[in-house]
Structure formats: structure tokens, C-alpha cells
Design a protein around this nucleic acid. Sequence first.
DNA 1: GTCTATAGTGCGATAGAC
DNA 2: GTCTATCGCACTATAGAC
Lengths: 210, 210
Amino acid sequence: MSVTDVTLDPDVSGCHHYTRAMVRWEPGTAARLYEAALELFATRGFEQTTAAEIAAAVGVTERTFFRHFADKREVLFGGQRMLVEAFLAGVDAAPGDAAPLQVVASALRSAAEAFPDERRSHSRKRQTVIDRNPALQERERHKLAGLAATLGEALRARGVAEPAATLAAQSAMSVFGIAFAQWISAGEERSMGEIAADVLRELSVVTSAG
Amino acid sequence: MSVTDVTLDPDVSGCHHYTRAMVRWEPGTAARLYEAALELFATRGFEQTTAAEIAAAVGVTERTFFRHFADKREVLFGGQRMLVEAFLAGVDAAPGDAAPLQVVASALRSAAEAFPDERRSHSRKRQTVIDRNPALQERERHKLAGLAATLGEALRARGVAEPAATLAAQSAMSVFGIAFAQWISAGEERSMGEIAADVLRELSVVTSAG
DNA sequence: GTCTATAGTGCGATAGAC
DNA sequence: GTCTATCGCACTATAGAC
């Protein structure tokens, strides 16, 4: 039972060799960590992959991994910044006198451009990893909620009052989430833009008082 | 400090199936851990409070804490079960031929009953703790997302098709969240039920096409 | 009830870029 | 000299296994 044979000693190999003599670190470390993490998560599972393994796969230490990402989950969500910017660009593109729903429609059209058909396969792989782990689902919801908050802020900046701004922003996220799930579902061939527009129309029908 | 100002969720864990003769420790351990945790989180902060400290505050071991709650955050979210049941009861209370939006309205009325005015002060305190910690916000969103999924399932069971069922369920959660935030905001005196009804009406206005 | 692995932090040192 | 990315190491807390 004794586990005294723990050869945890991290530095038995002595000094670290830098094969590229003059270059201590390659650029794009975060991006390479993302690629390695997605690959390891997909094959081995999220829980079964340690931060140290991901780091080792790209030739850095565990400590460096945590300098790039606040926690292990975060490695999969760095790209969300582009999505936020796409939504905001869509808000800006809407005419100044557009109703909140029209602004949302414009934001969704802009966001959909970040999901061209070539990316569908990669998105499916990433989502498979997320769908298999509750902790990753939590983080995804957190990111989407942050995006909704940012969208709501942009609407208020255009003069939309509360609670309309928050309702419109959260409705946009619901539509986006449902459309994305449909976009990556098996056999689906319509573009993200087409699907999102359809779901948005359905929202109007469902919520119309009558 | 006193146990009398708590109208809190009795039986947080829902696992008290033994008879008095079998009781070796005080019953309601989960509920007392919840109280102690809320107090410590409020004064010291979530991160700065260890599970061992919460356990010590009610006279049990750290190991016991983790038998009651899967992780440290979970101690604040055990009571959500009642909320789920309130929503589902509201769905069941709606007439069989009601439109999705009417079913949602019924669910919101039922859920609002779980937030009587006497509880407003306690809800404010709990929310202050959650608002100060991202990890707790993530867990809250996870719980609410689970509730949305359950609601969507209940709607599909009534024959509502996709994506209408998911849209209606997520809209219900948006309305609930916005109404709750308003209910606990400073100076607010309207009941949760009144506020939720108003926000739901506003949703219809915002999402109406045209 | 004890023991262990993993997540995640704090800090001083180092190497290259500016 | 400063700035930034990195290493290396000691450390705590969580969570789960035995």
C-alpha cells in the first residue's frame, strides 16, 4: 500500500534543452495549447486530461499553461472574443431608428458570418467535447451570458430602455444557441444565417400575445 | 446570526429518510451547513472560505460536508429543487389547449409564489454573495439552464413542437431572471408575481414582428 | 478516517526584445 | 534599463480513492 516509490521528482532529467538555440519561446503558445487540448479532450476526455499533459504536448510547463488560461476549461473558450465583436458589429450596422428586434436580427446576421460552412466540422468536434462535460457546459453558458450582457449594454447605448434591452439581448442568445445546435446537427446543410433567421421568426410567433 | 431570521429551504438535501431512533447526529445538517456557508461567504468571501471552515462552524468534519454537497458551490443551490417543482406545477395548471405563452405565464405565476415578500431580504443576501463570485454565477446559470431544459421538456410533453418549446422555455427563464433581479433591487416593493407579469408583457411587445 | 492526485497560486529568477 | 514570457519550486484547497 505504501506509495513511497513516487518518482514525482519533476527534474530528474536535469537542464532543459532548447533545441532552437536562440529562440526561447515560440509565438502563438495559446493557440497551440488550444489545439493540443481539443485533441486530448476529444480522445481521452476532459477530466482524464491533466493541465500538465496539455502543456507537455506543446513543450511548455504546467505553470505556463495557467499563465495563458485562468483555469483548465478556459483553453476551449478563448475564441469567443471574435464572436462578441461580430455581434457588436451587427448592432452597429443596424439603422439608428431600427426597433430592438431589427437590431437583434442584424446582430445575428453578423454573428452567423463567423460560422461559414467550412467551420462546421470543427465546431462539431469542439461541441462534442463540451457536451460530454458538465463543467465545460457551465463555462460555455457563462461565456454566452457575458455576451448577452454585452449585447444588452450595446442596446441600452442606442437608447433602448429596460427591461426591453435585456429581454432583446437574451432572446438573441436563445435564438443563436438554438440555431447553432441545429447548424451542427447531423445532416443539416443550411447555412447558419438561414437557420438563425428562421428561428428568430419562430420566436416572434411564439411570444406574440393573443 | 439567529436561526429565527431564516425562512430558508428546510431539507436542502432531501435525504432524511431515517427514523428518530436511527439518528446519531442532528438532523438538518445540510440546512445548517447552508446557513453557516452563507454567513461565512458573506463576511469573508467565497474563495476565502474553505469547506473545512464551514464544516467546523456546524461541528462536523470536512468529509461530512462533501457527503452532503458535491462541491463547495453546491451548498448554495440545493433549494433550487423547489423552484423546478413550482414551475412544473404551473405548467400542469394551464389548460390543455393553452398556447405556449399562456403556459409560460402560468408557470411564472406558480414560481412567483416561492418568493413571498418575507423572503426578499434573505434572497438579497444570498444574491450578493453570488454576484461577487464568478464561480457561483456559473453554477447559478447552470441550474437555471437545467430548469429551462426541464421546462422545455414539459412543453414538448404537451405537444409543443421545436423550436417553439425551447424558445418558450428560455424566454420564461429570461423573464424570471429579470423579474427576480428587479424584485430584490433596492426600493422595489411590488410582489414577484406582479413584476414577472409586467416583464412577460414587455417580452411580447419587444419580440412582435413589424 | 486517512492518503493522494490534480487544480490552481505566489514569488523569485532568467532570457530575450525593446 | 524595462517589459514580457517563461521556468522552477513551494504551497494550499479540492475532491476522490482507499
